[in-house]
């Protein structure tokens, strides 16, 4: 190792992190939190923050596979509908088909996974563009959910069922643990494994990936199924949190998820992005929503502010990354 570069010092490492996509976003988040904390004393409290963690679980879980998918240059618009479908299948198989609740949960999440698999199958085998395919299933899965539920909602779950959505473990909301563990695992999977490398390769140049002998179709099928699975899981958690099953659950969540992913630095054209960035995006949006509401800002004004922050964050990041690449 004669010509190997010397190991970077701690300062250099820190500097590199700070000017990365995630670093810049994290700074923006800090500024936002500090600012909101000066507006109201109800915002920066442990209880409030943990409560916000509970609320962002569904978006957070779905944002992980969405990051994977967008990195490959694809998109999944059907996640909200899969959430609704899962919730309905769960309630319906328990109440109408008489499944034990444990089996009903598994059935629900599996049907979500199957829905994602169907997306992947058509995208890979038939060559339907992801945007078109999942736009179609956005309607189709929602319709299925409505058809099965017949506008009835399923209630009356036993006490243990609410543990995941409403309980706490070691003082932290149960589902937040799930998010934390998932983020750690899937951030590592994306950054360090063959799957992760393949996703980046596909997003940058799908033909090149194929010509290198990567199993492109298999990977795509896997991540769309994974997206269905996580949406199903989110559906289950959502039912557990709100104690009831309705077919319109998860409506519009795909836009929150995509906004968080893109805010987190994942290019909508594919090829770049990270799970950590996405999570900062999820947290930033949730904290802005909550903090502004607590400061007495009306909900329509909140949306305007969030939109502006999104654009601002993306501009700042573009500027920083451009300077970095140029130097």
């Amino acid at each position: 190792m004669q010509s190997a570069p010397r190991n970077p010092t701690v300062v250099e490492k820190l500097r590199r992190y700070l000017i990365s996509q995630e670093g810049v976003l994290f700074l923006i988040m800090l500024v936002a939190v500090l600012f909101l904390a000066t507006r109201t004393d109800k915002f920066l409290t442990v209880d409030n923050l943990l409560q916000q963690g509970r609320f962002m679980t569904e978006v957070g879980l779905i944002a992980i596979p969405m990051t994977y998918i967008i990195i490959t240059g694809g998109i999944d618009l059907s996640v909200g509908s899969i959430m609704g479908l899962t919730a309905i299948v769960l309630g319906w198989s328990w109440q109408e088909l008489g499944f034990p609740l444990e089996l009903a949960i598994v059935t629900g999440v599996l049907s979500g996974t199957l829905a994602g698999f169907v997306n992947g199958l058509f995208i890979v085998r038939v060559g339907v563009p992801p945007l078109i395919m999942t736009l179609a299933t956005l309607a189709l899965f929602r319709g299925l959910a409505e058809g099965i539920s017949q506008a009835r909602s399923a209630r009356g779950y036993p006490e243990w069922f609410f543990e995941l959505g409403q309980g706490e473990v070691l003082g932290i909301p149960t589902q937040l643990w799930l998010v934390i563990v998932s983020v750690i695992i899937f951030a590592i999977v994306l950054a360090r494994t063959q799957l992760g490398r393949a996703l980046y390769a596909i997003g940058n140049n799908e033909t090149g990936a194929r010509f290198s002998g990567l199993r492109v179709n298999r990977y795509l099928l896997l991540i769309y199924s994974f997206s269905g699975f996580m949406s199903g899981l989110a559906g289950y958690i959502f039912v557990s949190r709100v104690s009831t099953t309705r077919s319109d659950m998860g409506t519009g969540i795909e836009l929150d998820v995509i906004a968080a992913v893109v805010l987190g630095g994942t290019s909508i054209f594919g090829g770049t992005g990270s799970v950590v960035g996405t999570m900062i995006g999820v947290v930033l949006i949730q904290l802005l929503k909550n903090g502004l509401a607590l400061s007495g800002v009306t909900s329509d004004a909140t949306i305007v502010v969030i939109g502006s922050v999104l654009i601002f964050a993306i501009l700042v990041n573009n500027f920083v990354q451009l300077r970095r690449d140029g130097s």
């Binding site: 063959q194 393949a198 940058n204 140049n205 090149g208």
Partner: peptide
């Protein structure tokens, strides 16, 4: 540029692209 390389990726990532199994 289109079929041979993933141009946006590094030399390291390109040279191992067909042998990911072996370096893992």
């Amino acid at each position: 540029g289109h079929q041979g390389l993933i141009r946006e990726m590094s030399i390291r990532e390109n040279t191992s692209m067909a042998v990911l199994e072996t370096v893992s």
